[in-house]
Design a protein around this nucleic acid. Sequence first.
DNA 1: CGAGATGTTGAGCCGGTTCAAGTGCCGTGG
DNA 2: CCACGGCACTTGAACCGGCTCAACATCTCG
Lengths: 243, 243
Amino acid sequence: MASAFIRRLKQAGPLSDLEQDVLLSLVVNPQDVAARQDIIGQHAAPVFLLMSGLACRYATLPDGTRRIAAFIIPGDLVGSSAGFTSGLPWHVGTLTRCSVAELSRPDLCTLTRTYPGIRCALRWLMQDELNRVRAWLLNDSQPSLQRVAHLLCELQARLEAVGLTGQGELSLSQADLADAAAISHVHVSRVLQTLFSERLVSLGHQKLTLTDVPRLRALAGFDPGYLAAGVAELAADDLLGGG
Amino acid sequence: MASAFIRRLKQAGPLSDLEQDVLLSLVVNPQDVAARQDIIGQHAAPVFLLMSGLACRYATLPDGTRRIAAFIIPGDLVGSSAGFTSGLPWHVGTLTRCSVAELSRPDLCTLTRTYPGIRCALRWLMQDELNRVRAWLLNDSQPSLQRVAHLLCELQARLEAVGLTGQGELSLSQADLADAAAISHVHVSRVLQTLFSERLVSLGHQKLTLTDVPRLRALAGFDPGYLAAGVAELAADDLLGGG
DNA sequence: CGAGATGTTGAGCCGGTTCAAGTGCCGTGG
DNA sequence: CCACGGCACTTGAACCGGCTCAACATCTCG
């Protein structure tokens, strides 16, 4: 949904009605994409908006292992910063069936120059991604139970923030979860059994439901602060990154 | 050295002499800081420039383990994006004795608005950090030998890019390397023994030297592309991040 | 209804951890 | 100048979390 897009951007700060309208005017002609398809390979650099479904950024190691570095949820804008990523190992691909709209990069850049709210929102998106990938790096130092729990908590929190998954249902295969947590899918299965026996999640085919988010967050040590941090604090003119 | 700072920023694209001068004019009053001191805690948000020594961004896990998420080398600007990081677990601290200059955030923001080259350079810095932290995330999926080798390769490449360490000497304790690789310092010692026996590094007290960078890179699967990627490609007006 | 992808369970293995003891290097202070 | 204390590093042994392999059960979709 386009509304998830606007909700996502408004996390960064206020957007005027006009700004919202011009942004939405860029969203045309959404395409359906099947599960397990690449949207962005190593070279192409379109800008697109995920409208429904679940996607991810991933890379493949020399030994064939896939590592997922981020989940991409509806409302997320994926613009692989022109030219800056060529030669990098990262791809973007769908995990479930998705609906995807491609945006015109030049148009988006134009909006960026004209509307300060949009400029601020896009900058915030990048800082947000940096925060999340750092959180994942930290997560890699946790034992598998906490690690899986943390991933689930983050995904739930992000979906909720754009108005999805009121009831904590995530449609995600265990294999995908394994590649995000960097553990084997066999072990993911065992970890989920543990969480299930603790009444923290319930399981289904390519679907799992968080039945007790507060206790799951406590287990994972999950603090949602890094997701929406600085919503109102990031000055519109502050260009400095988290470097 | 201030020249490392300029070299670092010029990786992003051309900077006019004027732009270089105004940037350097902000660098005043460098302070010496001992090893193992925090420069930025969870709350304070100064902007500073590392002029010599080695520092890192790190967080501490519930069990007391320290995870290093990035090395900070001379020429690096560390501005914890106003307000946006409050509540996050990340600290910045020195690993060796350092010389540090604090910059005025308002002045820097002013330059950002006035000079397009500087604006572009600072944006590039953030994208560069994103690329590196993603590379570390990928690295976490590698076995320990490659993992350690990759860290060493990256550090060497970055130092060289700002005109330091012609001969591959890194001053870094094994304990720090362990926290960056997320393995125990005991195992780091064993891994380094292996690299030494392969004639890839030589060892000293809090110091190690890369004696065969090409073979070490081959072992690590290190591709320097993600460090200086897009030097000339990132359009000055392109605000879109890697999201 | 069959094929392929998804999830489960068990057994054995291995990379890396932890604990512990010991060596060597450095800077400090007498 | 030397003695000392502490930090960095090394080495060995036991342990364990998570992996691999393999077989099987289950679900979905064409």
